[in-house]
Each structure stands twice: as structure tokens, then as C-alpha cells.
Design a protein around this nucleic acid. Structure first.
Lengths: 99, 99
DNA sequence: ATCAAAGTTATCTAATAATGTAACTGTTTC
DNA sequence: GAAACAGTTACATTATTAGATAACTTTGAT
């Protein structure tokens, strides 16, 4: 058994895998990561509301396949979509704050 | 001088001008209103940072015309654009919260 | 193990955001 | 009021989301 002699920070990991901050590859990854985060948030809220993807989709006039894509961070959604899903679909209030 | 005998609430105003909640005309207006709100927020932050539209644009590899369109709510921006402008362009942290 | 429901993925089309360029309109300064 | 700077708008192109449909995969229940 060997001792771990280095800790790969998340930042290091990102740099190694996706290049320095500001590069296009890295930027693309970070965009995806954020879409993924929103997706996870959505999934969480949807499950709390005890809705299936299809039920949620119906509420906003969309298809279940679309909800799936959003939840899995496969699309860089528009602001209107964000509002539609959370406010219309889940009756939640969205707040965007800048700090 | 006459007494004001009715108050037109914002909700009433919206209904009269744009139809009931959930109609496509009303929805379109609300989408625009929100884009406009984000735009106002951006303008506010940009001015606080004492940047011109062109300086901000340069920071994120965009054109000043694009910043103008966002500030005036003429486009339904994508999440990645939101992050790019505020985080990269203005070094601000964006938080999206659901309540 | 089978069946049904839920979720994921692929493909196509249509709508629209992002981008580039350039002209036009204010606004400020001298 | 001319010049310089800042912001807005118009137009064309490209890239990508939104949306429909259908097939495929995973999961859960019996």
C-alpha cells in the first residue's frame, strides 16, 4: 500500500482534462457543467413535486424527451425555457442574483 | 378635480393589454419583460463597473451591438451567455435559486 | 422472467440566438 | 456645430435550441 503524495484539486483536474481557463475546450466543458447543474436542480425539484418527466412536460406543452435532455445537461437552455419549466411547470419562483 | 375610483393593477393591465395568463400573446410579453429585466440588471452592473458596452464586449469576445441587444431585452439569451457576460465579463457570481 | 412505466437517445425540421458588419442615432466635449 | 465616442438598429449568415416522433434502454412491480 502506497501513500498518496499528491492531491489533484478540482481546478487541477479541470486544467489537465480541459485546458487552462479561458480556452475554448475548457469553456465548453464549464458550459456543460452548468447546464448539468441546472438539470440536476430540475430533477431534484421535479422528484420533490412527485412528477414524471412526462407529466411535467405536459404541463408546459413539451415532450418528455425534452425534459430528459434538460435534466441531463444536453442543451444550453434559454432564459424563457428556464422560467417556463420552473415557474409554469413546477410553480416555483426563480431568482437570478448577481454577487 | 375628480377622485380616482379605480386602480388598475399591474395584473389587470397585463390582462387587458396582453390577454389572460397562459395565452401565447401574454406569454410572449412576459418572456420579453424578463429578458428586459435581465438587461436592466446587466446595464446596472456594467455601469457600476464603469465599462462601456464595447469594453464589456471585448472582454467576452463579442461585439458592442450584441451587448446593446441584451441590455434592451431584444434577445432571449441562453444560460451560457448569461454566465459569460456576468462571470467572465463582469467578474460577478451568478446564483440561480428556486423557491 | 415478464410486463409496464419511466427515462434516454437518435433523427429530422423549424424557429431563433449568436455573430459579423456596417450604417445610423444620440451624446459629450472642445 | 464638428468631431469623437457611445449606443442602437438593420441585415445576412451560422450555429444551436426547441419541438415532434419513434425506437431503444432501464427500472420497478408482480
Amino acid at each position: 500500500m502506497t501513500k498518496v503524495n499528491s492531491i489533484t484539486t478540482f481546478e487541477e483536474h479541470l486544467s489537465k482534462q480541459y485546458g487552462e481557463k479561458g480556452t475554448s475546450t475548457r469553456d465548453k466543458f464549464e458550459t456543460k457543467a452548468k447546464a448539468f447543474t441546472i438539470g440536476a436542480l430540475l430533477k431534484d425539484e421535479r422528484l420533490q413535486a412527485k412528477l414524471t418527466q412526462e407529466q411535467l412536460a405536459n404541463k408546459i406543452g413539451a415532450k418528455k424527451s425534452y425534459i430528459s435532455r434538460v435534466e441531463n445537461g444536453k442543451t444550453d437552455i434559454q432564459l424563457s425555457t428556464l422560467y417556463k419549466i420552473f415557474e409554469v411547470g413546477l410553480s416555483k419562483q426563480i431568482t437570478i442574483s448577481i454577487a
